[in-house]
Design a binder for these strands. Structure first.
Length: 429
RNA sequence: UCCGCGUUAGCUCAAUGGUAGAGCAUUCGGCUGUUAACCGAAGGGUUGUAGGUUCAAGUCCUACACGCGGAGCCA
């Protein structure tokens, strides 16, 4: 099987390619069929004199997205998309396509999501999902090369790590209710005590009634967890990690970034060191920019945008008021009102892409925190075991895959960053 | 849950309260180098639903449904 991406090795040869009709133009006795095969696009030229009358007639009646097999000689052609072109001598339809809904003109969001199963064939969606795949591979490579062990958490969980209000619920045989995971972090902590450095990578589920371009009910998250790392070590890793992902995509997915018309200078500046500012500094920035903000609150989306707009690369905001953060985060020994937490805010208003912290490693303190948050102590006995048997300082963070994809691709909405988005009012197709 | 905007041809959108149109798609015709090709023609509508005001409603009013954007919450 020969694919379009490999045509540079077949110049001058007569080859047979298989794919779908992306677009078609004609001019009297010459027809241009744009073939799409999942690896690229190729303009196939059908001259009336080069093919049988039947084939020429057939070329005229193929609808958009018809699947077909075409044979012809490959030549270099700077005028054509991709730089190569085929002079066709034969053509065969594999599966016909009539009245394909997604035409080469503009469409609205609702229509496109209704046809998501077809929309992924479009050039821009194709580019986004190719980049998503490269990001996933970069994530795995990064941790694998640094001696992290993949240690996935369960999807079905018995309890909430931070309360049950935002969880999807499902009946579970005689045990009553179970929930879909909203984070594998607690399980990753168990892994870190076994393997030293681990990461989990999988889908997570949030039943939050968020109806914005930055939210999905099902999204993918990668969560590294490291024994003997403090908050500074955690931030060092997060910054190296983001630089690696962005620079890898810049290097490896130039073609796709071009299709997306991404301003790559905004990505080229994503190199270490990233600015690190405390929550207090961030509040100062908000006040200097005329925002009404009270110390102790968590940042809203417009606040995050104001902060991240001060910098040309991701900014790490650390040491948040403990009250707005999760129970498992360790307090700052120098100021017990603060949690040793860090959020990484992406540039260009893409918001929080990483949330992390140093974890509470003291048994008694953790028990107090669980009680303060009115969480059921019974459920956390296994988690407390990690503090009973050889507890160590440890840290980790979670990176939202779709937000990272959206940021790197420069797309408006998270729904385009995953093949089949799940939103509060949509679970089809 | 709250706030704002929207719903007209298969799609994207027009239409002072007065005969519902255009581009794309489709079908037919023309063109030997097109790049979202172009040119000509044809078909295609219970204007989201239910009421109301008016001589007259796509347009004004009310309710509902659905969609989009945002807030809160979060990755």
């Amino acid at each position: 099987m020969i694919y379009i991406k490999d045509l540079k090795n077949h110049v001058g040869e007569t080859v047979t390619l298989k794919g779908w009709l992306f677009n078609k133009r004609s001019s009297g006795k010459v027809k241009f069929l744009i073939l799409r095969d999942g690896t690229g696009y190729l303009q196939c030229v059908v001259f009336k004199g080069n093919v049988t009358p039947e084939v020429f007639e057939l070329a005229d009646h193929m609808g958009q997205e018809t699947s077909f097999e075409i044979t012809g000689k490959i030549k270099e052609e700077p005028r054509a998309i991709g730089g190569y072109e085929m002079d066709a001598v034969d053509l065969q339809v594999i599966g016909k396509s009539e009245n394909y809904p997604i035409t080469p003109k503009e469409h609205g969001v609702e229509f496109l999501i209704d046809h998501r199963h077809l929309w992924v064939r479009s050039r821009k969606q194709y580019a986004v999902l190719k980049i998503r795949h490269r990001i996933v591979k970069a994530i795995r490579d990064f941790f694998d090369e640094r001696d992290f062990t993949l240690f996935d958490g369960p999807i079905i969980t018995p309890n909430a790590s931070e309360g049950t209000s935002t969880l999807f619920e499902t009946p579970y045989f005689d045990l009553g209710k179970a929930y879909l995971t909203q984070s594998s972090q607690l399980y990753a902590e168990a892994g870190a005590m076994a393997f030293g450095k681990v990461y989990t990578f999988g889908p997570t589920f949030r039943a939050e009634k968020s109806k914005t371009r930055r939210h999905l009910t099902e999204f993918w998250m990668v969560e590294p967890e490291m024994a003997f790392y403090d908050l500074d070590d955690d931030m060092d890793l997060a910054e190296e990690f983001l630089e690696y992902i962005v620079q890898t995509v810049l290097e490896d997915r130039k073609e796709e970034l071009k299709i997306l018309e991404r301003d790559t200078t905004k990505l080229e500046s994503v190199v270490r060191p990233f600015p690190r500012i405390s929550y207090d500094d961030a509040v100062k920035i908000l006040h200097e920019n005329g925002r009404d903000f009270e110390w102790g609150d968590d940042f809203g989306a417009p606040d995050e945008a104001t902060i991240s707009n001060q910098f040309d690369r991701p900014v790490m905001v650390h040491r948040y008021p403990a009250e707005v953060k999760a129970f498992y985060m360790k307090r700052d020994p120098e100021n017990p009102k603060l949690a040793l937490a860090v959020d990484v805010l992406a540039p260009e208003g893409y918001g929080e892409i990483i949330g992390g912290s140093q974890r509470e490693d003291d048994y008694d303190t953790l028990v107090d925190r669980i009680k303060e948050h009115d969480l059921p102590l019974d459920f956390f006995q296994w988690y407390l075991d990690l503090r009973r048997y050889g507890s160590v300082p440890h840290s980790g963070f979670g990176l939202g895959l779709e937000r990272t994809v959206a940021w790197i691709c420069g797309i408006e909405h998270l729904r385009e960053a995953i093949p089949f988005p799940r939103l509060i009012y949509r679970n089809t197709p």
